[in-house]
Design a binder for these strands. Structure first.
Lengths: 199, 199
DNA sequence: TTGACAGGTGTTCCAGAGAACACTAGCATG
DNA sequence: CATGCTAGTGTTCTCTGGAACACCTGTCAA
């Protein structure tokens, strides 16, 4: 038997990551045995349980299968605060697509992307040309950035509570606070933002 | 029996997408029945086969399970500039579809995500806690936002040309321009930005 | 009118995925 | 030295996921 190497699991984890990149799922216990060379499924099961306590995988909500956590995809996430030198060890890999999507979108069927027009939210770091991730169902609360419908126009503002009435506050001193007369119609809540530089 | 509705599958697809967002896998035939209301697993199987020909799912390399394709992760892109009233037209599939990852990442193997620390770029709309998309290969040019290595520390600044020498300019008046003595080492070029609101 | 097809229901059957349990070899620790 | 923990092997059992097949019923086209 090989000596107990505490860093061996990270090598195993790499195998699982490679498999996930191809098949987009955590391998079965049987396939883990093939991938790593275990002779017994129990070893695979225990490995998964170790990876669970380490925070790389977790049970599905139905508790009938394993799923990766965000830490599972963590490889291309560089920690610039800690690292000194040795930048080459943090190369990204092919299979890590859809990390961003999963980071931003919780309920796909209720989520859409909305391009930002204008600079009324510039002081909140939301620029013209950015794309905001909008979740339609979410109940908007004071302090949320929302897409509201004012005079048949869509507008992105912060929802605030002013004397127990809702109002829309731009983040740009050049624009006034919007205090709607009747009902304030909220199209959706901004849950994320995406920006692309240079072309 | 309900009338054959050609757009019914897209509603089913939404259920699968929501399930995938939670459990990170295509549901089993049995669970598809629960999610949608099918009484027979065969209906679930045929649905998956339809979605395969439509290009939303495919078989794993081992041909023992279903996995999502890139089309599975497409999000609707709303054009609020056109709007005028009818926001619900965006519900349908007719609008443009859009892949966040593809939008931000051109070369996955050369791309990584870097969390932003500090507020030295706040005036450029880059906040503490944002994630920037960094491409390692790209040749940096004046005007680019770059991750540079200064004194063994990673720092995010704008690369500028000052008297035919490169320097690093923060976008926050509280910080000074960095004029490196010797070689200025560029780790990568910022090609995108991702921000998540509320939790 | 008559197919043919699409989208379902219902049923049977089997492989395999995972749980559970007993057991073992190294390695640390008191 | 005993003790216990960790990371494995090997085995059995159960249950479920999926394939296959027969059948049903609206819709549309010829």
């Amino acid at each position: 038997m090989p000596p107990a190497d505490p860093s061996r699991d990270s090598e195993y984890l790499d195998r699982l990551r490679d498999y996930y990149a191809e098949a987009r799922r955590i391998p079965t216990q049987q396939r883990i045995c093939e991938l790593i060379g275990f002779a017994s499924k129990t070893a695979a099961k225990k490995l998964l349980e170790r990876l669970e306590t380490a925070g790389f995988v977790e049970r599905t909500p139905d508790d009938d299968a394993w799923m990766p956590t965000t830490r599972f995809f963590e490889r291309p996430l560089a920690d610039i605060a800690v690292r000194a030198g040795a930048p080459d060890m943090i190369e990204g890999t092919q299979g890590d697509m859809f990390l961003i999507d999963q980071y931003l979108v919780r309920q796909p069927s209720r989520t859409l992307m909305v391009p930002v027009k204008g600079d009324s939210m510039i002081d909140a770091g939301i620029h013209d040309g950015d794309l905001v991730v909008v979740e339609r169902t979410k109940a908007a609360k004071s302090g949320d950035f929302v897409i509201a419908i004012v005079d048949d126009e869509f507008t992105l503002k912060e929802l605030i509570l002013e004397k127990s009435k809702f109002a829309l506050k731009p983040h740009n001193p050049a624009y006034p606070i919007i205090r709607p007369q009747g009902q304030l119609e909220i199209f959706g809540v901004v849950t994320g933002l995406v920006r692309r530089y240079q072309g």
